[in-house]
Amino acid sequence: MPTSPYLQEITPDNFEAAVGLRVRPDQEHLVAPVVKSLAEAYVHPGIAWPRLIRDGDEAVGFLMAFFDIDWTGGGTDFRSGLWRLNIADKKQGGGYGRFAVESVAAEIRRRGGTRLTTTWHPGADGPAGFYLALGFRPTGETSGDQTVGVLELG
């Protein structure tokens, strides 16, 4: 019987499954490993929202979201969005990335937000096609060497 993916808070019981997730080798330069994300979540309590993506008993991915952060540091541009997305090597193409984005969008809506922001590495080997296919549009901004995209949740 097929199962549906769901999000799970990171706990001592699933920590090893989370940090054991690996993207395809050719994608490792595009996204930080889960262990780095969890370290960032630890030093940014209340900002980072890390979640394991499971399908039944299997860990298939990881996401980390953020809510209402001061994007530019000026106190006027607060954003929510997807900070990190790692889908396991052999699980890509199964709809788990879409599920992750839809889950973050639902949480942003639940918190009263109307836009989902994310960043991606540009270039032929980056995930731009994935994000554009989901309806994200580049804002014309960059964050470091990454493209900033936004999805209107209206």
Rank of each mutant, 00 (worst) to 15 (best):
H29Q: 13
M1D: 11
F67P: 03
A133H: 03
L153F: 06
S103K: 03
R84N: 11
F62R: 02
E107Q: 04
F15L: 15
A18G: 05
A18H: 11
G149M: 04
P25Q: 10
T118M: 14
E58F: 12
V101L: 10
E16W: 12
E28C: 11
I69W: 03
E40I: 12
H44E: 02
R137V: 06
E16A: 15
R98C: 04
P12F: 06
R24S: 15
T118S: 15
S80V: 04
G94N: 09
G97D: 07
R115K: 15
L153T: 02
Y96W: 08
E40M: 09
F67W: 12
R84E: 07
R109H: 01
L153H: 02
G149P: 08
G97S: 00
E152H: 02
K90I: 14
R79A: 00
H44I: 00
Q146T: 07
V31S: 02
V148T: 06
A100M: 05
V34M: 03
K90Q: 14
D70R: 01
I69F: 03
P45S: 06
T72V: 12
Q146W: 02
W83R: 00
D13Q: 08
A18R: 05
V35P: 00
G144T: 01
E107C: 05
N86Y: 09
F62D: 11
V35R: 00
L63Q: 07
S37D: 13
G126A: 13
G135C: 10
A18I: 10
P45G: 01
V101E: 06
